[in-house]
Design a protein around this nucleic acid. Structure first.
Lengths: 182, 182
DNA sequence: GATTAAACGGAGTGACGACTTCGAATATAT
DNA sequence: ATATATTCGAAGTCGTCACTCCGTTTAATC
């Protein structure tokens, strides 16, 4: 692949991540303009708008997964789990698309995105079971409902445009529900 | 107002509620077709699509508020509060727009919808404080974060297409966080 | 039942967005 | 430096959607 082509592809991805993060309904032209390329260049690299969206989404899921993997194996699994949870929710607030991505991870999506979603959930599941083994999270809480909480908290925070204090108080309530009953 | 006009207006509202509930991005033509009227008739009653959306949203908010008011003054405020919470979340699942409406209730929207949102939140707040006085909900949980939980649970359930069992387990976790610490 | 004012439907209109075409430009290999 | 294969961007095309115009129909009044 030629150097300029590679450059442009990267620039388009970055621009798309930014634009769709702000408003998921944005047009392809907006992405092209921000990337500083022509529209045709966008469509040469990503045959359809859906394909572009999926590439962005996959990237985001992989980033989240990587963060989870970094925290895996921590010597304080409880803190690791709750810190990860908070980080994801905090980022959703400024980046609408992450919440969408989290949603799509479970539902229908392209092949790559599905795979990335599975990887991310596996990493999160690892954090959860470690935290449970450490006694920081109740053992009768299973992955599906805990993951649902993560999605809900993310989407709720994003949708309601919560200020950080309210968001943290909401998270505190959720965390109390996740902790083992004394 | 003529009888046929009143009829049509009602039919349009019903159709819009249904159509937008299924897919918020639906076109005005879809609404007209389902209502069995011409497009022009829709626009005669609602000058713009936004106006129609707002009317539907207002109606939904008022329905939710009414349910809250019905439960207000129950002799078991704790059950009343949690039952209301569960009902709202359960309905969001099948009716996408309710979650959107709950969101919009806080954010920018038309005058009528804003007013309806305030009324709904006031009714919910009443349920909350009653439940707190009855000792069913911890007193250090305030309206903003509890409302955020309601929005989050609704949007999460809708987005993730949770099956009822998972949804109930998620709600159980949330409720445990809301109950007074033993 | 005739009158008429209001409501109706369906064929436009203009704007916008996804995607294509094609001549100009440019990176790499000789 | 030149050749050429690849990439680039601007100006299209096509379909969709919110909204309008106007001749026709119909509910209410006499």
């Amino acid at each position: 692949m030629r150097a300029d082509a590679r450059d442009n592809r990267a620039r388009i991805m970055t621009a798309a991540d930014d634009v769709f993060g702000r408003s998921p309904g944005a047009s392809t032209d907006d992405v092209a303009k921000l990337a500083g390329v022509g529209i045709a260049t966008v469509f040469r690299h990503f045959a359809t708008k859906t394909e572009l969206l999926e590439a962005v989404l996959t990237l985001r899921l992989e980033r989240i997964r990587d963060r989870a993997l970094e925290l895996t194996g921590s010597d304080d699994p409880g803190t690791a789990f709750f810190e990860f949870f908070s980080q994801v929710v905090a980022e959703s607030e400024s980046k609408l698309a992450i919440a969408e991505a989290l949603t799509a991870a479970g539902a229908a999506a392209g092949e790559d995105a599905q795979e990335a979603g599975r990887g991310m959930r596996a990493a999160f599941s690892g954090l959860l079971t470690a935290a449970q083994k450490a006694g920081a999270v109740r053992t009768d809480a299973d992955m599906p409902e805990v993951y649902a909480l993560l999605i809900g908290a993310s989407r709720g925070a994003t949708a309601a445009k919560l200020d950080p204090e309210t968001r943290d108080r909401m998270l505190a309530l959720i965390y109390d529900g996740l902790k083992p009953r004394p």
